[in-house]
Design a protein around this nucleic acid. Structure first.
Lengths: 210, 210
DNA sequence: GGCAAAAACCTAGCGCACTAGGTTTTCGGC
DNA sequence: GCCGAAAACCTAGTGCGCTAGGTTTTTGCC
């Protein structure tokens, strides 16, 4: 029973490199021509292997989509990390608007997000676990920051921070959907700001907007 | 150039009956085993025809899903019609909560809705047009009722009713997503109520909650 | 009632996502 | 350096969504 228990060798360097290339190629094609319209064979060709070979690394097309999204999510999480723990509620709410603007800058991202969200609705699907965890983490983080911010001011009585966090995330997701369907016409960032402002006026101690 | 221009005959009665049966069978199977896991062949078998025969009526599986959803949407629209035009803002907001509770009562409905929403993200897809129109109509209706209600009271200055309507719909959609992913754990109706209450406090003339 | 024309339906076949099982390549341990 | 086990990769085959084109059934019209 050493550190490397008998059997079990882990990925080879060539495999790791291949997976990275696959995710890059997939991200490119998905953003370019859409998830449903890109065939796994094309992505496999892009990286110089067979469809079967690709499916060795990612057992299904959905798993591949998930890997692409996970890549995005980590980048997103890193960005949020720049917020200090003692940031006040107003700063957090402003960060939500800024995050939306960041998403808008990357073409195809929101479409992919909406798609993956729906995929996550299937409890048997691979995306389910990731999203379940992701939502829980996001709600907790946002709620924690709001709670901390309120405790430093005079908290409004009976404010459920987790509920506020869930609402913020819901508004963001729901508006993203409307934005995609509107073909990019909707002022997404503006709408998110309006809501953040409403939250500020109803839950922040001073009752002022953003 | 008579009323029936040459050519063009319209559906036969047998076809209409068949389509209805197909939609019923599809709705049942989709709710039962999920959209992705039900094969068109099964639905075709249920109604006693071939897969090819089914595809004559609905050119694609997505079209069929869309037909199922349209069926639900009309039922939903009829329900909303019970609201009087001169209903006050508070009544409209309460109706949103009631609508959510209605959705929760029908198993599998919200899952299908989330799925179809994502499908609508593809501009080339069949669901896109329906959802684009649906959202526009919903926003206009809600905004109109809010506007009417506010004009009868003392409207808060600078309230964009359309924006409020979009936000309400976004919250509803976004929370539905979280509800599905949570496996039904989330108190969906409660969360919608919390938001509706916040809206009431920030946009209704009296500034009171629900 | 019978005649087209259009709807309803079927058959054959393609591409894609995915599976099963075999072959080749990598690489830690001797 | 080389052995062997596991990773990496390929090949063959299946079921599904969908298309193309043909056949059967319905139905308005004379």
């Amino acid at each position: 029973m050493t550190s490397s228990t008998r059997g079990r060798r882990g990925s080879y360097s060539v495999g790791i490199a291949r997976r990275q290339k696959i995710v890059e190629a997939a991200a490119h094609r998905f953003a370019e021509e859409g998830y449903h319209r890109t065939a796994l064979t094309r992505i496999a060709e892009d990286v110089g292997i067979t469809e079967g070979g690709l499916l060795h690394h990612f057992p299904s097309k959905k798993h591949l989509l998930l890997a692409v999204m996970e890549h995005r999510f980590t980048a997103e999480a890193q960005w949020w990390a720049h917020l200090k723990d003692d940031a006040d509620g107003r700063t957090v709410l402003r960060a939500m608007v800024a995050a939306t603007e960041r998403h808008l800058a990357e073409p195809g991202l929101i479409e992919l997000f909406v798609l993956t969200s729906a995929e996550a609705a299937d409890p048997a699907g691979a995306a389910h676990a990731l999203f379940a965890e992701r939502y829980q983490r996001a709600v907790e983080a946002l709620a924690g920051q709001l709670r901390g911010a309120m405790e430093r001011g005079t908290p409004r009585e009976g404010t459920d921070c987790a509920a506020v966090a869930r609402e913020c995330i819901a508004v963001s997701d729901g508006l993203q959907l409307q934005w995609v369907i509107s073909g990019g016409t909707l002022d997404l960032a503006g709408a998110v700001r309006t809501h953040a402002d409403r939250i500020a006026r109803t839950v922040l101690p001073d009752g002022l907007g953003l």
